[in-house]
């Protein structure tokens, strides 16, 4: 490749699962035009998206996901780009049923993010994505636990997605109530009609797979943010029967964590020979959702 030796670059990495990266990034793509900030470090790549100071999502792509990860920067380079374009662009590199290897480099001569396919000598796909100076993150999503015991529960991702989908029709904010005795979680929406979904730890422990709570907590969250945090999960998360962990922090800040497989095409099955790759072939997705203001009336707040 002409222009610029590798020593001048902050990052050169090779990835053999473009589709996995597309899946991971798509899970935080809740609208067509969305700005994202990418942060590079020796540990991997983090992509951050935010909405209205109330919702933040992060995708962690650890360096172990990459075949090659050469990081040579003193600081932690950050740049902004359009998430939609990045995903659409990555999609042009993915061939169905074929695991393509791509090289990602940063920065290009004009601070671009550079991508190049590495599979065949005579077929080459390349891309240059313009980056911009990132906006400062408008709100610090510093997450603190409420007490000594973190209040959290883990529910099957597919079940969580279905529950949130169902909560759409009352058209209101969703109250999430978590109580230690009896150990249960309730999702409730009151608007045009009421809908309540209960997960009781003892009776539905195949759905609610883990539960930890020492105090009753109840907060309300905007429906569109909960939906943004669950509706774009790739199908493999649902198929692999993975769990999503929800933790309620100080002030009602809700953290939702998903795990997305970043497997090579052809090694999709978790019990295949590539089992030993499994722990490192996961992208971590985190959403932080701020609760509704408490002084708002409890219903008809839309």
């Amino acid at each position: 490749m002409a222009g610029g030796g590798a020593e001048a670059l902050d990052l050169v990495c090779h990835l053999d699962s473009v589709q996995g990266m597309v899946d991971a990034l798509s899970s935080v793509r809740w609208k067509r035009h969305q700005d994202a900030v990418i942060e590079l470090s020796e540990h991997g790549i983090v992509l951050i998206v935010e909405e209205a100071g109330c919702l933040q999502a992060k995708v962690y792509l650890k360096r172990e996901l990459f075949l090659v990860y050469e990081y040579a920067s003193e600081g932690r380079p950050r740049f902004g780009l359009s998430l939609g374009l990045f995903v659409d662009c990555l999609n042009t590199f993915s061939t169905p049923g074929h695991s393509s290897v791509i090289e990602i480099r940063y920065p290009g001569p004009d601070m671009q993010l550079l991508l190049k396919s590495m599979d065949f000598p005579d077929v080459c796909t390349y891309a240059e994505i313009r980056t911009r100076i990132p906006d400062t993150i408008s709100w610090d999503y510093h997450f603190e636990h409420t007490g000594n015991v973190p209040v959290s529960f883990t529910v099957r991702s597919a079940v969580l997605k279905e529950a949130i989908d169902d909560l759409e029709w009352p058209c209101s904010a969703v109250q999430i109530r978590i109580q230690p005795d009896p150990p249960s979680v309730t999702f409730r929406a009151e608007g045009h009609g009421d809908l309540q979904i209960d997960f009781e730890y003892y009776s539905t422990n195949d759905l609610l797979v883990a539960f930890q709570c020492d105090q009753l907590l109840s907060y309300r969250y905007k429906y569109k943010f909960l939906r943004a945090a669950t509706s774009n999960l790739p199908s493999n998360v649902l198929k692999d029967n993975r769990g999503s962990k929800m933790t309620v922090g100080r002030g009602g800040m809700l953290k939702i964590q998903h795990l997305v497989s970043v497997l090579r095409a052809g090694a999709q099955h978790p019990f295949s020979d590539h089992m030993h790759h499994q722990p490192s072939r996961i992208a971590y997705i985190e959403f932080f959702v701020k609760p509704e203001e408490e002084d708002e009336p409890p219903i008809n707040d839309s």
């Binding site: 374009l85 662009c89 077929v123 796909t125 390349y126 891309a127 994505i129 313009r130």
Partner: peptide, 12 residues
Amino acid sequence: TSLITVGSEFRK
């Protein structure tokens, strides 16, 4: 476009 360039080349 102003934000992105994507291309593909098939050789030989």
